[in-house]
């Protein structure tokens, strides 16, 4: 298992979120999630400009094994999506916490991020799942 970066926050459903310097929030799925899914073959990205409530399904990742919804970790408007994933979904397998980001949001309420798990709590969650 790769290291869990300390600056990330997590959902129990294995999405991560990072607050960038400009206040936008970058979202992806954890290294654990990609490892559980196995080889990814499609990513269905949200539309730029779309608005999502916290916890609503906004993207889909499909592996050879299964399809999995991605939930918005906080509410907001989609600022950008990682178009590279359309051709190379395996980037998520290779670098889930970095190049494999899925979209960025302009948060409607930045405080919502505090409700997410921090890296230690997420590490504990993975340990409990084992």
């Amino acid at each position: 298992m790769s290291e869990i970066p300390g600056d990330l926050r997590f959902l129990k459903s294995h999405e991560w979120a990072r607050v960038e310097d400009d206040g936008s929030v970058r979202v992806g799925i954890s290294a654990h999630a990609q490892s559980q899914l196995g080889d990814l073959v499609y990513v269905e990205l949200p539309e730029v400009g779309a608005e999502f409530d916290s916890g609503s399904a906004c993207a889909v990742v499909e592996s050879v094994k299964a399809a999995s919804d991605i939930y918005a970790p906080i509410g907001g408007r989609v600022l950008a999506v990682n178009d590279a994933l359309s051709d190379r979904p395996e980037i998520i397998n290779e670098d889930a916490f970095g190049e494999g980001w899925i979209f960025t949001l302009a948060p409607s309420n930045p405080d919502e991020i505090a409700a997410m798990l921090d890296a230690d709590a997420y590490a504990q969650l993975l340990k409990d799942e084992d």
Partner: peptide
């Protein structure tokens, strides 16, 4: 064994 790293590889 389901796979040894990548089932596609």
């Amino acid at each position: 064994p389901l796979h040894y790293g990548s089932q596609v590889d």
